[in-house]
């Protein structure tokens, strides 16, 4: 004790200086972490700001109700693309969601052991496939086979993307239903399929809905598979066999055209796209986080 306190070498003092450094080092690193949050927020705010600044003025009644007159010049609106998006994403949902939900039910309610683990692993890997690969698949299977671009080819590609997403969200939603609920259903003498269909699915319907909405918003904003499958027409698609445009297609064509009128149209289409996607995402997240807090 006395050794340390004599002379100029005070061990306590050096320890306390080291502590000060450690403390400030800690502060610095944590401030850097907070800085990372700000770095991530800047692009988000800039994207929202720019899309609405350049896109909202472009929005008009004509834009939303008239079809495109030209790919690159002024005139008309984006109604054909809006209709195309609705048709493509709607068809894709009709094909992909039932398959995804049934596969999710299998994983949660019936699947056991190795087969289920394999399906789960495939779904996880599959959900992360590059979307352009799935577009290439749809091109090779549908476009090459039928000989022309079509709404159906695009819808097929998007439904393929939707399946693994919905499978996993369904499985997770069904896992949240306690087993006691299933047991109660069985105790009433219900057969298993009725327990799953009328009891478990009903209890998990909130989770199923949010999962489906997120999947829907994901494929609604998807571009790459559509670029190689739908052909990009200026007219309203008359059916699944017809070529079509989509909102994302108009954004891509317009943004890369270098022609002002098409760029304005691209910002307008991006605004509609972003409004739909953000509305779905924000409402879903707010609802789920509120549910989680409860």
């Amino acid at each position: 004790m006395s050794v340390g306190l004599t002379g100029g070498s005070n061990p306590f003092r050096s320890v306390s200086r080291r502590d000060t450094i450690r403390k400030w080092h800690s502060h610095l690193m944590l401030v850097l972490c907070i800085g990372a949050v700000l770095i991530a927020l800047i692009p988000l705010l800039s994207i929202l700001f720019e899309v609405f600044r350049q896109g909202l003025p472009a929005l008009s009644y004509d834009l939303l109700t008239k079809r495109q007159y030209f790919q690159y010049f002024a005139g008309g609106g984006i109604a054909n693309a809006l209709w195309g998006s609705v048709l493509i994403v709607g068809t894709a949902s009709l094909i992909g969601m039932p398959i995804g939900i049934l596969a999710g039910i299998y994983l949660s309610e019936y699947g056991q052991g190795r087969p289920a683990a394999v399906v789960r692993f495939f779904a996880d890997v599959f959900a992360e496939f590059p979307s352009i690969i799935i577009g290439l698949f749809a091109y090779g299977v549908i476009v090459v086979w039928t000989g022309h671009f079509s709404v159906f080819a695009g819808a097929f590609a998007l439904s393929v993307m939707l399946v693994p997403i919905v499978t996993r969200t369904t499985e997770e939603a069904l896992h949240l239903v306690p087993d006691s609920v299933r047991e109660a259903g069985l105790a009433l003498g219900l057969p298993r399929w009725r327990v799953t269909g009328s009891v478990v699915l009903r209890a998990a319907k909130g989770g199923l809905l949010t999962g489906s909405l997120l999947g829907f918003s994901r494929i609604f904003g998807e571009t790459a598979p559509l670029v190689v499958t739908i052909g990009g027409s200026l007219f309203f698609a008359k059916g699944l066999d017809d070529t079509s445009s989509s909102l994302t297609y108009v954004v891509w064509r317009g943004a890369t055209s270098g022609i002002h009128a098409a760029e304005v149209r691209a910002w307008g289409a991006a605004t509609v796209l972003l409004l739909v996607v953000l509305a779905i995402n924000i409402s879903v997240r707010v609802i789920t986080s509120r549910r989680a807090e409860r």
Binding site: V37, A40, L41, P43, L44, S46, I47, E50, V51, Q54, S217, F220, G221, E222, T223, A224, T248, V251, W252, A255, T256, E263, A266, W267, A270, L273, L274, V277, L278, N281, I282, R285, V286, S289
Partner: peptide
């Protein structure tokens, strides 16, 4: 905060591209 960060994931990639061409 986590909702806001996750919104970044929700923005379609073509909108990122549009922003990339004209702003970034």
């Amino acid at each position: 905060l986590s909702i806001v960060i996750e919104l970044l994931a929700a923005i379609p990639s073509v909108v990122y591209g549009l922003w990339g061409i004209f702003i970034l």
